[in-house]
Design a protein around this nucleic acid. Structure first.
Length: 591
RNA sequence: GGCCCCGUGGUGUAGCGGUCCAACAUGCCUCCCUGUCACGGAGGAGAUCGGCGGUUCGAAUCCGCUCGGGGUCGCCA
């Protein structure tokens, strides 16, 4: 039995009136008026109303049995709806199908939650019955958006001369970065692969191979804790280019975003995307991924208070710290200030100083500690207007940045200063090459160990490594880091020096990255690239709060896939084949 | 591992020491209804309030532990 020709339900318009159509789909909703019965028939394309008239006895009696989510084949003519009964809410609202023949292809149990509306449902239930959840309009829309967005990316990069090339998923484990998922080797007992965290090294080797411009839409795996925007397996748009500098990479990436936003959302992204240095972002926004949908820039106030006698400020300055503040262009109640203070404290600040700007001057519990000149300076620095509130933190620079960055975000959200529906892209450039691990105190790569230092910083590599800046850049959208990239090292000697800066000895580097260093000795072109989280991009484009909403079958916070109950206890036979033995038996999970 | 929030018929919520063998909406079942579109009307079934323990004359409600879910910090080169 061939199921063609099918007519997609959502595509039927009045110009098809009189034509006989074959519809295949799900019963979305049923309205039984006693005589006449209407159902909305749903398929991927949308919804169309079907009429069951008692005149068509067979169809009408079958129609009376139908329930939501039953699968049916309907045959009948497209009819114009009687005047006054059109539904302007539906694209198909001018027409209806008169069912002349009905075949019930499958009955359905009542679903555990309503498929035919968008009412909130516990996410655990949604994930357990994901195939039902995906029938709902919002999820169907998200997956269709994801498809169109992915296709727009491919079309654009293809037109720009990029080749899509697949790289291995089962790769050698490298201890840097995120925790690896390990896959034991059956053929070499005791040996393991790692699932690729990213195609980083392979794409650089593709440049050495002369592929010139590469991209890949690629699944990546990281065994870390989950978040609203983090899954153990996620998809990256990964690209790499030869014979380029920073501007070439940024140009391609931002034109790609402009193309995609125009094509998929009909939104024009102003070009070029603005750029801000990492140092500037930390100073003005307190974070390296600023949300520019609102202002609230952080102001340097240290010099305004350089002679202050206010003990808390004095001590911070004397200890080499800074005082910075934020003008909130709105009156803020005591409760809200208390909440913002808590936000600042959570980031390590000892408190939050605040002044209410009034018509005649400043009102503040700490007003008496400040002289005329300081308040004039405060006014000049913040340009506060009557009704505004200025908050400030005094401490070491890292704490001040973190605290005010968090206060800025919290204030924007609670006071409704965020421009909804806006897409504010920004490049963050000139990242440091290294950073000191908070945990171990060791120097680690801020981006990854293959990132090129700026040429003018090369002589500081050994002497002042933390002052070396990298040829690295991040792309940020609405305060979410989409991804990052860099110009890579292509000189084996420079690569060795950076490894040494990271505390990796020559021998160790040869052992772990020998293939890369060897490759670089056979003529590596200068190259650089970028990678971003496709799930995050789709999430933001679709206006969703988590990437789970744009992934067909995502995992929960325990990294479980609830529909199939993965992961599952290991089969002893499989373990034997792999030469593995469990040290700890699997815990039983109560239902 | 830390912190925060949430677990009440299938689903979403209300109830926050007795008036609750738990209420409302929706879904489900039966009946009525020939222009509905979240159709309407009448009736019915359906939860021992995540679990265990405690406080109390009395617990959905208070306390402790625990299980489950989410957010977040750490972590994510």
């Amino acid at each position: 039995m061939s199921l063609t020709p099918r007519t997609p339900a959502g595509t039927i318009r009045s110009d098809q009136v009189g034509r006989d159509v074959d519809l295949y789909g799900w019963v979305h909703r049923r309205r039984d008026l006693g005589g006449l019965i209407f159902i909305d028939l749903r398929d991927r394309s949308g919804i169309v109303q079907v009429k069951f008239d008692p005149v068509n006895a067979q169809a009408h009696s079958a129609g009376g049995e139908l329930r939501p989510e039953w699968v049916v084949h309907l045959k009948g003519p497209v009819q114009r709806r009687p005047p006054g009964t059109e539904n302007k809410e539906l694209p198909t609202g001018e027409v209806e199908i008169e069912a002349r023949a009905v075949t019930i292809l499958n009955r359905a149990q009542p679903p555990p939650f309503a498929v035919n509306d968008d009412s909130p449902v516990d996410e655990q239930v949604r994930l357990r019955y994901r195939y039902l959840d995906l029938r709902r309009a919002r999820m169907a829309r998200n997956l269709q958006l994801r498809h169109r967005l992915t296709k727009a990316i491919r079309d654009f990069l293809d037109a720009e001369g990029f080749l899509e090339i697949e790289t291995p998923v089962l790769i050698r484990s490298t201890p840097e970065g995120a925790r690896d998922f390990l896959v034991p080797s059956r053929l070499k007992p005791g040996y393991v692969y790692a699932l690729a965290q990213s195609p980083q090294l392979y794409k650089q080797l593709l440049m050495v191979a002369g592929m010139d411009r590469y991209f890949q839409i690629v699944r990546c795996y990281r065994d870390e804790d989950q978040r609203a925007d983090r899954q153990p397996e996620f998809t990256q748009l990964d690209l790499e280019m030869s014979f380029v500098n920073e501007d070439d990479v940024l140009d391609v990436v931002e034109r790609c975003f402009a193309h995609v936003w125009q094509k998929v959302l009909g939104v024009t992204v102003p070009m070029p995307i603005r750029r801000i240095t990492h140092a500037d972002a930390m100073l003005r926004y307190g974070v390296d991924k600023p949300d520019l949908r609102y202002g609230l820039e952080i102001e340097e106030l240290s010099s305004s208070f350089d002679k202050t006698e206010f003990k808390i400020f004095r001590q911070a300055l004397d200890a080499g710290g800074v005082i910075r503040g934020l003008r909130i262009p709105r009156s803020v109640g005591a409760k809200e200030i208390e909440a913002l203070t808590e936000v600042a404290r959570a980031e390590g600040a000892k408190g939050l100083a605040f002044w209410h700007r009034e018509a005649e001057g400043w009102r503040s519990p700490i007003a008496k500690f400040f002289g005329e000149r300081e308040l004039v300076d405060l006014q000049a620095a913040t340009k506060a207007e009557p009704g505004d509130v200025v908050v400030a933190v005094a401490d070491q620079v890292e704490i001040v940045s973190a605290a005010l960055g968090a206060v800025r975000k919290a204030a924007a959200r609670t006071l409704g200063l965020v421009k909804e529906g806006a897409f504010e892209f920004v490049w963050v450039t000139d990242f440091p090459l290294f950073e000191r691990s908070k945990e171990t105190g060791e120097i680690t790569a801020a981006h990854h160990p293959f990132t090129s230092p700026r040429p003018q910083d090369l002589e500081r590599l050994a002497s002042e490594p933390l002052k070396v800046q990298a040829r690295a850049y991040d792309l940020v959208l609405n305060g979410t880091e989409l991804g990052s990239g860099s110009i890579r090292i292509h000189d084996p000697e420079l690569q060795q020096r950076v490894f040494q800066g990271l505390g990796i000895s020559r021998e160790e580097a040869e052992q772990r990255f020998g293939f890369l260093l060897t490759a670089f000795r056979y003529g590596a072109p200068p190259h650089g690239g970028f990678a971003y989280g496709l799930d995050r991009v789709v999430m933001l484009a679709a206006g969703q709060e988590t990437i789970r909403e744009v992934i067909a079958f995502p995992k929960n916070q325990q990294a479980e896939e609830l529909m199939t109950d993965a992961p599952a206890p290991a089969d002893p036979k499989q373990l034997r084949e792999l030469g593995l033995e469990l040290v700890r038996p699997p815990l039983k999970r109560p239902q």
